[in-house]
Amino acid sequence: MREASGQNEIVFHEVSKFYGEVLGVDRVSLSIPAGITGLVGPNGSGKTTLMNLATGLIRPTRGTVSVLGVPPTDPERMFETVGYCTSFEAFPPGATGRGFLEGLLSLRGDGTASARARAEKALFRAGLVEASSRKVASYSKGMKQRLRLAAAIAHEPRVLLLDEPLNGLDPMARAEVIDLFRTLAAEGRHVVISSHILHEVDLLADRVVLVKSGYVVAEGESHGLREEVAERPMQVLVRCDLPGVLAARLFSSGLVSEVELHEDGGGLLARTRTPEKFFLALNEAVTGGAVLIETVTPADDDVKAVYRYLIEGETVS
């Protein structure tokens, strides 16, 4: 059982949230350490609910949440260390980008000079200095997203929660923002990124949490997630000189459930439920001189494959 008072982690302990009779999330237990964590799932899966629970915007129906040991019911302590970039699109009327940030910093007790300096730094990091004197109402969607990001990082929090932070950004901006996330994580911060776009998270995150219909269906290091779906066959691509021979050998040993031979005759795609034994069998085939193996590649050892297995219920072809 996880401790609900982790001093260096974001901890969800048996957390459930119901909106009336509608399920938000159910019995979620998670401990999120420093580094980049991806929260992945389709729209409506509960990603935003988890982030809102962590920051106290909503309260759990059951269970407890804490961020670095601080409960969300203590905003004075919590938001000294937490920055949350929400997916809510609105901004207060009439404000410029800089004025908006300085206003938020003044809420933290910053004086004028301090607020100005910290706002400037956040605007620079978010790449929004040039537009900072314009009214927010005139900003593009991407600029508003950058401004939300700047607001979340302006007080240099130890924990950053980012809800779909790459939405609305052009490719250049995405690259810059992703670099920023990596820099922030390298500084020892917790960076939690929610997304339904898998490849973004797959590239970025040290750890991935998959969410579906309010439940955490898998969690772990990006590549380690494969173990979370042990009941599903793993796909392995093998390039070799005698794929037919290898396929027969694997079938006879009962280690594969399905094999597809490549049309070019130079390899096969095998599906196995016992990957460790499968790889041992491959080694034996090589050392016994039965086949000459060129490459062995897990065909689905990435978040996308696991996502398909767990979220979409598909078999990867």
């Binding site: 915007l57 905003p75 004075e76 938001f79 937490v82 929400t86 609105a90 901004f91 207060p92 809420l107």
Partner: peptide, 10 residues
């Protein structure tokens, strides 16, 4: 816009 206030240490 209420969340901007609620996400401050106030």
């Amino acid at each position: 816009t209420l969340h901007f206030l609620f996400l401050s240490p106030v």
